[in-house]
Design a protein around this nucleic acid. Structure first.
Lengths: 228, 228
DNA sequence: GTCTTTTGACGCACAATTGTCACAATCTGC
DNA sequence: GCAGATTGTGACAATTGTGCGTCAAAAGAC
């Protein structure tokens, strides 16, 4: 993960702050202090992610966002908007514009960091998320939110469903509790890692005879067995 | 994860509370009851993280933060600010100063704990290691946490796995017991160097016919043979 | 509002893992 | 060969990690 991030903000202090922090996480930072330069750099350098301030001189952040999302060269690049106020309007606009996420000032560097990582992970060459995952007797349907064992449907809660989905998507690979917290519960989760255990247990209970599909890897985490 | 954390706070009660809690999570705690001492300790002991109260006698917490972030020796150390009130102003100040996160009093020890862990997790060196290492008849898969000898899977405990992984990554090069303790057990581990021998033995037992891959270098340590 | 479901947390118990020790075996330099 | 140092081995106790039962809070359903 050595992603290149473009920061578009007119305040050097903010740029420095963001840069300092993200650099220490191993990202490469480039920056622009106005919209035009930002767009130019986005095209020229094709960063993996753009952090865009809403308040910019000349062209506003919203304009920049629209332009970037319209241009086929840059439209695929995820954008995190930085808004000065937590006005709902701004947020919606940001999202309507096609921004992928937003943070409101003041934001903690940690929060920004987590969002960046979350988005980059999401947009990574994911094996195009399957709508329907089959795994032995187990079938999981994303769009219908249903899980079948054999022919029988089993009822899962939202959390259990997500947990199962993540495990299935990465079957064979061990997932640490931390990783699961991040991906199932979201990046801001302030949750005990032991809670993962509880949910795994509940999931297993509902999986009945297939409970053993979910394997415990002592000292590490859990995984879905890939050989059935 | 045996990180060292510096707590800078003038109230002994608060320090005790924080220390007690973080210690039980396996962190090593050092403290200072004023800004000057804090800065001095930050430089001398180079902790992995600093928890800094905003309200301090003599130099204020904001000053301390600025100074720490300006000094190249300490600028990379993440800082969590503790603010008495959740005033927006304080937050902004904290951010402008370059603090990495903040908690507002009263905070639950658990929350602080989770934030600490979250930050430390982030600043840990990215794993750039190979997913899958092959070495003769031996195959080690990091993400699956599996080891194969020939076609057969062997079960290793978490420690054995890490030990084998480190040896494989540095095959051919001799690793001293101290070095192994550092890299497998984590730094600051208060463990007898002879314990490494025990684990090498257990690893060899499980490696069966390939036990000889792990060579003893008398007077120095162990290494993985690179010619198979 | 009340009732039900879901969620996160905690303590306990049990088993696997771990670290340590004493002693045997081996090596090194003489 | 021998003495001293180093490493291997077996046994044991302490520690740790996980599953399970349960509870209280939070979120939804009605």
């Amino acid at each position: 993960m050595n992603a290149k991030i473009l920061v578009i903000d007119d305040e050097p202090d903010v740029v420095d702050l963001i840069a300092l922090n993200l650099k220490s996480s191993g990202f490469k930072i480039i920056s622009a202090d106005n919209g035009e330069a930002g767009i130019a750099k986005a095209k020229a350098e094709s960063p993996d992610l753009i952090i865009l301030d809403l308040m910019l001189p000349k062209i506003s952040g919203t304009e920049v966002c629209k332009i970037l999302k319209r241009d086929s060269v840059t439209s695929a690049i995820p954008i995190i908007m930085v808004t000065a106020k937590s006005e709902e309007v701004d947020r919606i606009i940001g999202l309507e514009l096609g921004a992928d996420d937003y943070v409101t000032k003041p934001f903690s560097p940690r929060e920004l960091n987590l969002r960046v990582q979350s988005i980059l992970r999401r947009s990574q060459p994911e094996q195009t998320k399957q709508e329907r995952i089959k795994h032995g007797d187990l079938t999981l349907d994303h769009s219908r939110y249903e899980v079948f064992i054999g022919g029988e449907k089993i009822d899962l809660t939202a959390t259990e469903f997500k947990l199962l989905a993540i495990l299935l998507e990465r079957k064979g690979r061990v997932q640490s509790r931390d990783r699961l917290l991040n991906d199932v519960w979201g990046y801001e989760s302030v949750i005990d890692t032991r809670t993962v255990d509880t949910h795994v247990r509940r999931l297993r209970e509902k999986m009945g005879k297939l409970a053993d599909y979910v394997e415990t890897v002592r000292g590490v985490g859990y995984r879905m067995l890939d050989a059935v």
